[in-house]
Design a protein around this nucleic acid. Structure first.
Lengths: 96, 96
DNA sequence: TTTATACATAGGAATGTATCTATATATTAA
DNA sequence: TTAATATATAGATACATTCCTATGTATAAA
């Protein structure tokens, strides 16, 4: 899949969204569980989740009433490495 | 040096700034030379350069009337890798 | 010293973004 | 079917960002 780098970096340019990503680091959480870690209202959290989803940083699964979100670590790796490679000399490429 | 990740990602979340970074990939350029690659006015380019400078992505040297900008590739590597590591499992760390 | 050139800064208009409240939709429980 | 719960969407407001024009500052040239 081809990730949109500009969308990715815009998405991670917000501290609340990075915090959500950290919460999802090694476990799935539903929206209410994520909300408990913030002072924001639930619609704001939902908005941030939709930005992350739109950048392919998180995926979600609906189970019953709840929607569970999880991190897509391939996206993170791919975007961070892909961006770096844009600025590497040709001879340095492929060393990662 | 400790880079500000949020500042870094905000800085690279703009296509014009990424284009400046690409222009500086393997050579120093002064502001006028950079301007030639854009439809923007010079003050807008100057503004983008100051955002990049503020995030430690570029450094500059004044020579005569001209100010030459260059890319700090350590910053790029350090921020991209540093961010990724935030979301890696402990056992995976250190493999890059 | 005056003029020209290179760049930066100030201030404003248009647009984008984050947050809120109110409400819609989907699912489960009564 | 009706009520309750979980989440998403809509619309408004405040603030941030991008771009512009106008102008300031530093350096070099005349």
């Amino acid at each position: 899949m081809a990730y949109d780098l500009n969308k990715f970096f815009k998405a991670i340019s917000d501290p609340s969204r990075v915090k959500i990503m950290e919460l999802l680091k090694d476990k799935e959480l539903n929206v209410s569980e994520i909300c408990q870690h913030f002072d924001m209202q639930q619609p704001s959290v939902s908005h941030h989740l939709s930005v992350l989803k739109n950048a392919d940083i998180v995926a979600h699964t609906k189970r019953g009433k709840e929607v569970y979100y999880r991190l897509d670590s391939i996206c993170i790796t791919s975007c961070c490495n892909g961006f770096q490679e844009q600025f590497m000399d040709i001879e340095k490429l492929g060393k990662a």
